[in-house]
Design a protein around this nucleic acid. Structure first.
Length: 287
DNA sequence: AACGGACACAACCGCGGACGA
DNA sequence: TTCGTCCGCGGTTGTGTCCGT
């Protein structure tokens, strides 16, 4: 059955989004909630395909997104999770509040992968320890995350070292253009929210937290927490789409005979490992 | 100052899964 | 069960900016 092409219609705009388009999209999502992307272009008049609208929302306009300046903790988690899960960026993103899969993917491709390659080529990682192999972390870590032999070749240590070297190479933020400026979006949204509130719009919010947490949001209604999100800090950062994805991922994970439930991993990654990483990071700065 | 390669990141593309008719 | 549609994911590309020569 051939799939109908999505974005090859005449008059469909491509390329960077303009502030006006962003405002239109945010306004629409706030009123109707994320989802039903197919109807977004026709209902808003945006000359964008549905996928483009969804991508713009999930990767850029969605409230609560944090951009740039990955913390050492986040770097360590990405490295761990990439080794654990492979290039499952959406799954990795579910463990990094406020980060999008696209952001993580880009960061991995542009920063972390390069560092890992340099490390491997420098012989600091053994050739028989492919970083993306499931069995490394899938066994060594999952069967007991404290099961380290303490050798300098330990891949986790290497990952942390890489993370550390990345931090030291972190360059100053680029001058912002529109497409990469969160501040611009924030200003746009704040201005728009003020204008809608002044008109008595019940769906206008004074700040991001209110936007996130408000029960007035349509998509919150269809997105009740079923208890799968055990980490409250995480749960509050995800909209309906994310929660559903997390449920799916957790279900898939539970189906796996080789992996423990991700709730366990979640707890471990967020608590103990992060502490270990940060401790090791602190130590690594001493050398 | 001009140029070109490197880099970073937003956005696009194509595929596959989920779901309803 | 099959088909059609929608959505999400991962890989890739396009483009703007930086930086060295």
């Amino acid at each position: 059955m051939g799939r109908p092409p999505c974005c090859d219609k005449e008059g469909i705009k491509k390329g960077p989004w303009t502030p006006e388009e962003d405002i239109i999209l945010v306004s629409y999502v706030q009123q109707h909630g994320p989802g039903n992307w197919r109807s977004v272009p026709s209902n808003t008049g945006l000359l964008r395909c549905s996928k483009s609208c969804r991508l713009r929302w999930t990767n850029y306009l969605r409230p609560g997104i944090k951009r740039g300046n990955f913390t050492p903790h986040e770097e360590g988690m990405i490295i761990h999770l990439q080794a654990l899960l492979g290039n499952k960026w959406a799954a990795i993103a579910s463990y990094l509040p406020k980060r999008t899969d696209n952001d993580i993917k880009n960061y991995w491709n542009t920063h972390l992968k390069k560092k890992l390659n340099e490390f491997q080529s420098a012989g600091q990682l053994q050739p028989h320890m492919p970083l993306s192999s499931d069995h490394i972390h899938g066994n060594a870590i999952l069967q007991g995350h404290d099961h380290h032999d303490g050798s300098p070749e330990d891949e986790e240590v290497a990952a942390i070292q890489i993370s550390s070297s990345t931090i030291t190479n972190t360059s100053a933020p680029r001058p912002s253009t529109y497409a990469s400026s969160t501040e611009n979006i924030s200003r746009l949204l704040q201005g728009w929210m003020r204008s809608t509130r002044s008109h008595g719009d019940d769906h206008a919010f004074s700040n991001e937290e209110e936007f996130n947490s408000s029960n007035d949001l349509p998509f919150n209604d269809a997105c009740s927490n079923d208890g799968m999100n055990t980490n409250a800090d995480h749960a509050g950062d995800y909209n309906c789409d994310d929660s559903n994805e997390r449920k799916i991922m957790l279900r898939d994970s539970n189906d796996s005979s080789s992996n423990p439930p991700l709730t366990f991993l979640e707890k471990w990654l967020l608590d103990e490992t992060s502490a270990q990483i940060e401790e090791t990071m602190a130590l690594s700065h001493m050398f």
